[in-house]
Design a protein around this nucleic acid. Structure first.
Lengths: 340, 340
DNA sequence: TTGAAAGCGCTACCAA
DNA sequence: TTGGTAGCGCTTTCAA
């Protein structure tokens, strides 16, 4: 057995035992001092010696060892996939992380692109997170939830359009966004309404319920709805605009402001008058929506704040029974500008 | 109560010992079977018994215990902050994660907003990652690097505008972007060039070198450069446009296409002719840059691919001496459209 | 072919 | 006020 002292810079990673040795105390004392354990009182000179030794060695506690010993971690795992979800979502995401860290959780995003739902759940479970907060970018099955809970997760929370068995669900009723847009278009007199469906993968979770919402609102008023698959590029937008008149649409809900901008530009280039010939409504109320002319009408979405969600996570971790299983958290309203 | 009490709340997380007991073998055998250890041969019936037991219990290995025992992990840590860096970066980021997982690393993003550089490095070190890849969103000091290496990180790689002592650096020379834009504007005849500097925090790492690049190109040709702080909102853009003529600018590099769009719209609303009175150049070659009229000229950036970086990470992990300490990885060129 | 047991780094209980 | 030490879940050496 070759005991090679071949650590990267020749030295080995310092442990609490090294600190104890250098300070001339026991490992227990080191632990007490560095964790400020309230139940034990250590003399000031000893404290100082321990601190100095730790400093000198560049000692950093080993999180895995600590949580192994403790039997639990404070890791909150956020599964992510690359879904170009826009500033709204990413702002929320950031707030959430910040708020969780303030509550003393270690927040870790786990990129799960290309894993199937059960593989993914297993990979997360290996890390033994105390909570998993799925923002709906990655699918979560009831089996996955069960596995996570079995491996110690106190809270499994989903934020998204769908309800998942066994989780605490923060429902974002995307259909509501579609209903708002649909109702608005109907009210503006539209009778045949197109709904842009992005072809980029990963957006179905949002686009499908939004379409359903438009449908509900439109059909209640006797208007027709036509889904319009579209890739986020100039060419397909131009092609769609090219056959616009044969589609006979007098209104369109364009998934979000970015797709709306793309389509609107293509329609204008094709000589379609907006809103005269076709009314256009986007969603998410992005800054860019105000840059084209006519200014884009949009659905403004009020999202739950990251801090609130962080508090929910904390509450569920402390007492899994304490929170409602399901909570609505999205509110939306149409901001009418000039394109509708 | 409709739930069977046995497997709901009070149950404990199954360990390899539980699997061993259920299968009627030792823990060692469980480990051999589940890890397909090549050095040991286990009979097929035993293998099956172990697998079935693991399945039945929903056993998931404990990553912390495993890496504690192994003395190392395969975790690659990517520090992140919320920097609205655009699709270019986020695409790269995603590719990197995917490629690293294919090389059997566990990729974890660690949100580090609001931590100072040394706190952050310490927090990362606690997780004992085998590699840290900093995409330049979070600052890394030489002390931080030293700490990480001391705690076992084999590779510390920075990707960004700056070189950091002790790391393998993949330099993205953002100044080059500025130089390209500056040279282009000078060539179009501009003599007094504005450079938009976003006021949103976190972008200085990109905006400052880009400004320096424009300066270099402009001053070589005897042109002047004026920094223009700007927040990403309609109002400040309008205000800037309002005092445009007194600034006497005949060209502007607008940081990126989004800021360029915002500014261009404000300038047009203020009656400034583009490119006649002022030429506008953005950066990053985003889709939206083609939606306004005139179409936006931009600096197209070719970034290194995530896969290449993943391979570099792997090489450095396996042999820290094997790779060059510094490598250029950004190439840029002006795409002239109509705004310049 | 399988089992017993040591030990990774840490904390918490109990003893001194 | 401090030290000794068991044991968290896992892998791996050595023995059977």
């Amino acid at each position: 057995m070759s005991q090679s002292p071949k650590q990267s810079a020749g030295r080995t990673v310092p442990t609490s035992a090294d600190v104890a040795r250098l300070a001339g105390v026991s490992r227990a004392t080191v632990s007490y001092v560095l964790n400020n354990t309230a139940a034990v009182r250590i003399s000031e000179p000893t404290r100082r010696r321990v601190r100095e030794a730790a400093e000198e060695l560049g000692y950093v506690p080993h999180a895995a060892a600590r949580s192994l010993r403790a039997g639990h971690s404070r890791m909150v795992l956020l599964p992510t996939a690359h879904v170009p979800i826009g500033p709204l979502y990413s702002r929320f995401f950031n707030d959430l992380q910040w708020a969780l860290r303030r509550l003393d959780y270690t927040v870790v995003q786990y990129g799960s692109v290309g894993l199937d739902p059960d593989e993914a759940a297993r990979a997360w479970a290996e890390l033994r997170p105390v909570a998993v907060v799925s923002l709906g970018q990655v699918e979560l099955t009831p089996q996955g939830v069960e596995l996570l809970k079995r491996s110690g997760a106190k809270a499994v929370i989903t934020v998204g359009p769908q309800r998942v068995e066994g989780t605490h669900a923060l429902v974002m009723d995307q259909a509501q966004v579609g209903r708002a847009a649909g109702a608005h278009l109907v009210e503006r007199g539209c009778r045949t309404i197109g709904v842009v469906m992005p072809e980029e993968p990963g957006l179905e979770m949002f686009s499908v319920p939004r379409l359903a919402g438009v449908r509900a609102a439109a059909e209640a008023a006797g208007a027709e709805v036509l889904p319009l698959p579209l890739r986020y590029e100039e060419e397909p937008a131009g092609a769609l605009a090219g056959r616009w008149r044969e589609l006979g649409l007098d209104g369109v809900f364009a998934y979000n402001d970015e797709y709306a901008m793309l389509l609107m530009r293509a329609l204008q280039d094709a000589g379609i008058a907006i809103p005269g010939e076709t009314a256009v409504v986007g969603s998410d109320d992005l800054v860019i929506g105000r840059l084209l002319r006519p200014r884009l009408s949009t659905v403004h979405i009020d999202m739950v704040m990251g801090r609130e969600l962080a508090e929910l996570v904390d509450r569920v971790v402390r007492d899994p029974e304490s929170a409602p299983e399901r909570q609505e958290l999205l509110d939306s309203r149409v901001v009418r500008r000039e394109s509708s």
